[in-house]
Every structure is written in structure tokens, then in C-alpha cells.
Design a protein around this nucleic acid. Structure first.
Length: 301
DNA sequence: CGTATGCAAATAAGG
DNA sequence: ACCTTATTTGCATAC
């Protein structure tokens, strides 16, 4: 409702790919960035939360514990998987003055969402949740409202533990189950993801967070560890091609965008990349080209 | 230094 | 086994 349905065309990635003059949706322009830049808070809160993650009390302490983790800066180019480092001690927080807050988490009307709505095909949770109706129920039965709520206090609880998005991401790779990067954590907290993704992430983050809080309470030497064997299947690490490789691949692509299995094998060998990686590169390249072509129909070259 | 984001690898699902 | 199409997710880097 607040957002301006700007005549912007975005692709599946939500990237702006063009403008459609005929899209005359928007009611008005307005929304000149409300000065309301209310971010959660500035200082790391010391909160007492229950299992549901609801704030039940705030600690008047002002300690700055949580040396939390120590990461090795290594992991340069080695083909070997990076190992995980256990998070450090972080003694239990000494229970200082406890100031109970009202049982009812006085829900703030919270300023309107500052997230504009685009014409993206796959709306993010934040976009959907800030829509007019707010049935909070996604057409696929996903409770958007619930996710929004969780995302909000996930951040609060994370900060309470003195952890950064990066640390959470790394810690997740150490535990069983799918792992996610700092980017993913960030997007989840911002709800800059599709309901489907959010639904998938939520249980993972929830489980991990509960575990982390438990360890923290016990002042365990290990807030998270276990490198044992990471039995779960993790996503393949994203390959970063060198500029030279990209150049070479593009040259091959130009000659033949649909190489045979044999050719792919040769190219892979020549450039010294995994065959599968090269094959996928061609697939993605074709896809990109196709999408780009479609776009051109709507634009003036 | 931590978080946000663009581009594009990797993956899912149906041939 | 590999393609296409649609999407998810992360590296690299901007903020």
C-alpha cells in the first residue's frame, strides 16, 4: 500500500531490468522517505527471553562479554574444505539487576514498512507482509506473519548472544543440517527472501539459536562446535572463475553455445575447472542470454 | 568492522 | 546423462 508501484520491470532475481512506460499503476508518488529510521537499538541489549523468544526481562547490566569466536583467517585457495573453529568460552552472563518488563510485549504499531513494492515475480516476505490485506497467510499456506515475527526476534536474540551474522553463518556450517552464509542470514532478518525460502530457513535458524542460547547459559566452553563429520549435505561452494577463465569460456561459448559432453570435458581440462562446473556455466550462460534477449523486446537498444 | 546487495553459481523439477 | 526453466543462495564488494 505504501509502496509505489513504480513502472519498473524486474526479472526473477528481482533485479531491475527495465521500465515499462505503460505500467500506470501507482496511485501517486509520494513517500519521500520518512525520517523515521528506527532501527532496533544501538546498544547490545541484555535481554531475558523465554523459549519462545519473547522478551521477558531486560538486564541492566552493561558488560561487554562475548569474545565469542575466533576464526582463522586462512582458507585461501586450498581445494580442501575449510574447517570450523569452535566458538570460544564467553562466560555466563552474571545476572545483574533484573527489570521485568510488562508481560504483554506491547506490540508497537511500528512505523509503516519502508519497503517499496516492485513488480518482481517472486515477492519477498517483507513485500507481502506489508501489503494491504495482511491475511498473514500466504497462498501456499505459509504464515507470513509468523515468519516476520520470528525474523524480528531472531535478530534480537542473536544480538543478545553477541553474535554477528557472519558468526551465525559460520556456526551453521558446523552443525548438521543445511548451512547458510552471512548473506542469507542478513536477507532472512530483513525478510528479503521469498516466503518459501523463509519457511525453509526458519526451522534451521530456530533450532540453531535455541542450541546456542542453551550453551551460552551454561557458559559452556563451546557454544558451538562439532566438526566430527558434518554428515549433512552442504551446498557446493560457489566457484569463482578468474577473469581469464571467463574470457576463455565466453570465447568458447561464442563459437558454440551448446558444446557436446566431449567438448565440455576438453574445455574443463583446458581451463582446469571441474567438468560439472563448466557444464553448469554453459547452462547458466545460455539462460542468461535467453533472458537478456527477452528483455530487449521491451527496450530500445 | 558488520551488514546490505549485485551478479551469477548451484540447485530443483520436469522433460 | 544433460537440457531448460525457475529459483535459491553465496561470493565479492559496496555501504
Amino acid at each position: 500500500m505504501p509502496g509505489i508501484s513504480s513502472p519498473i520491470l524486474t526479472n526473477a532475481q528481482g533485479q531491475v531490468i527495465g521500465a515499462l512506460p505503460w505500467v500506470v499503476n501507482s496511485a501517486s508518488v509520494a513517500t519521500p522517505a520518512p525520517a523515521q529510521s528506527l532501527q532496533v537499538q544501538a546498544v547490545t541489549p541484555q535481554l531475558l527471553l523465554n523459549a519462545q523468544g519473547q522478551v521477558i526481562a531486560t538486564l541492566a547490566s552493561s558488560p561487554l562479554p562475548q569474545p565469542v569466536a575466533v576464526r582463522k583467517p586462512s582458507t585461501p585457495e586450498s581445494p580442501a574444505k575449510s574447517e570450523v573453529q569452535p566458538i570460544q568460552p564467553t562466560q555466563a552472563v552474571p545476572p545483574p539487576a533484573v527489570i521485568l518488563t510488562s508481560p504483554a510485549p506491547a506490540l508497537k504499531p511500528s512505523a509503516s514498512a519502508p519497503i517499496p513494492i516492485t513488480c518482481s515475480e517472486t515477492p519477498t516476505v517483507s513485500q507481502l507482509v506489508s501489503k494491504p490485506h495482511t491475511p498473514s497467510l500466504d497462498e501456499d499456506g505459509i504464515n507470513l506473519e509468523e515468519i516476520r515475527e520470528f525474523a524480528k526476534n531472531f535478530k534480537i536474540r542473536r544480538l543478545s548472544l553477541g553474535l554477528t551474522q557472519t558468526q551465525v553463518g559460520q556456526a551453521l556450517t558446523a552443525t548438521e543440517g543445511p548451512a547458510y552464509s552471512q548473506s542469507a542470514i542478513c536477507r532472512f532478518e530483513k525478510l528479503d527472501i521469498t516466503p518459501k525460502s523463509a519457511q525453509k530457513l526458519k526451522p534451521v535458524l530456530e533450532k540453531w539459536l535455541n542450541e546456542a542460547e542453551l550453551r551460552n547459559q551454561e557458559g559452556q566452553q563451546n557454544l558451538m562446535e562439532f566438526v566430527g563429520g558434518e554428515p549433512s549435505k552442504k551446498r557446493k561452494r560457489r566457484t569463482s572463475f578468474t577473469p581469464q577463465a571467463i574470457e576463455a569460456l565466453n570465447a568458447y561459448f561464442e563459437k558454440n553455445p551448446l558444446p557436446t559432453g566431449q567438448e565440455i570435458t576438453e574445455i574443463a581440462k583446458e581451463l582446469n575447472y571441474d567438468r560439472e562446473v563448466v557444464r553448469v556455466w554453459f547452462c547458466n550462460r545460455r539462460q542468461t542470454l535467453k533472458n537478456t534477449s527477452k528483455l530487449n523486446v521491451f527496450q530500445i537498444p
